[in-house]
Design a protein around this nucleic acid. Structure first.
Lengths: 229, 229
DNA sequence: GAACCGACTGACCGATCGGTCAGTCGGGGA
DNA sequence: TCCCCGACTGACCGATCGGTCAGTCGGTTC
């Protein structure tokens, strides 16, 4: 929790508050209080409120980029890589929920100009990497070649993001039972995607992902977690 | 633009500003200016800033509920109903982007308590209605019975919401070509879902989803034919 | 006409906002 | 020893915040 230097504590407090309440709802005084510093000291380390916000955002981006870069381990079968990616991505959203919310908030606020910058410098690299995985799957015949790979990527990411951002809502729906089990969500998501994506004339449902029985393998998410560390 | 009474103009201005910048970033003065009224008059019609915000939010909810209720016309084949639902939902997100953003903003802010209220009073009804459509599809054999219907609903809604909220970003990605054509997005989405959802050995592929057998899915139709053999 | 109404306004309130400033303090280099 | 520098503070600034208030105005009712 408490980092040694005040600067770190300020950044941490700002990250918490900004992600929880948004930029305008958080005062520099509140940040200083939570960080255990004086307001003037906050301005000593960060020249303006906006500079502090940008510093927090920068950390979020770097964190996101570095983490997603670690997902490149993939040489296994396509289904496995897909499940790994989906599981890791969702797990990361949930683990770093403050940063995730921060970025989702940004998404709602930014205009076209900042969007382009954000797209090019931060997200496109990861998105493209994912798309390339999918294209590789198409090339090797493990994925329907007529599909738009970016489309598939969008669906998968969208499902994960929606799971994350609407989870406090979905949790209350009678029909929803998977909210407390992200791994199960990932598993079902990949199952659904695969059988829509699979190239074979018959759905590949009978073909096991990892050589176990006909049921969708229950431990892909666990495998993803294992692979990550 | 200009509605007759000042109260209406205030509500309209508030809706614009709140959805664009968020609650805390908008001052009552700004709302009054945009509405062409004095700040005191705004307080004459709405006792507090929060009351005004709630009034805007209430309108958004009612609007959302009434519109989704109009989607219940469904007696056609399952694939058609699914495409209709997805298409209408996405179209509505894009048409009413101010209200949509408003609600997405709320989702990021609310705590568990307000979430429950919001869930029960506004969204669950629509969500459940959609789930029932899916369950009906399962009952009539048009949809894989082993799937969690709520899960399928979440994926579809998530894809649409993500399309909406990330569209300023996605538009800049080289791999993404469908951002300017929501109908094409819906079509591909439903295609992917259907072939993952269809009952196992022979997926039900209803003919054209939308009235005209348009050029739209020459690729996907070809793939469907390929998959069938 | 008098009495009353809701719509509406400008001037004003205390609180809080982001940001500044002069100055205190402790540690390290000369 | 002196000096300097970065971390840090409390007191303070003008601007703006949400909200109040006394009062004006045009229309309706008796």
């Amino acid at each position: 929790m408490s980092m040694g230097d005040a600067r770190g504590r300020i950044l941490f407090a700002a990250e918490e508050l900004f992600s929880e309440h948004g930029f305008d709802a958080v005062s520099m005084n509140a940040i200083a209080l939570r960080a255990g510093a004086s307001k003037a000291n906050v301005f000593h380390h960060f020249s303006t409120k906006n500079a502090l916000y940008l510093a927090v955002l920068l950390r979020a981006r770097q964190e996101a980029a570095s983490h997603l870069r670690s997902l490149e381990h993939g040489n296994g079968p396509f289904a496995r890589r897909l499940a790994d990616f989906a599981g890791s991505h969702l797990a990361r959203l949930l683990e770093q929920k403050q940063l995730s919310r921060l970025i989702l908030r940004e998404l709602l606020t930014i205009g076209p100009h900042r969007a382009q910058e954000l797209a090019e410098h931060v997200f496109e690299e990861n998105f493209r990497r994912f798309v390339l995985i999918l294209r590789a799957g198409q090339g090797s015949g493990e994925l329907r070649p007529d599909l738009d790979a970016a489309m598939v990527a969008t669906i998968l990411l969208g499902a994960n993001v929606f799971f994350f951002e609407a989870r406090t809502l979905l949790r209350h729906f009678r029909d929803v039972e998977f909210m407390e089990k992200p791994e199960q969500f990932t598993e079902m998501l990949v199952d659904i995607l695969l059988h829509g994506i699979g190239p074979s004339p018959h759905p590949v449902r009978s073909r096991p992902l990892r050589g176990s029985g006909s049921r969708i393998n229950r431990d892909t998410a666990a495998a993803a977690r294992r692979n990550r560390k």
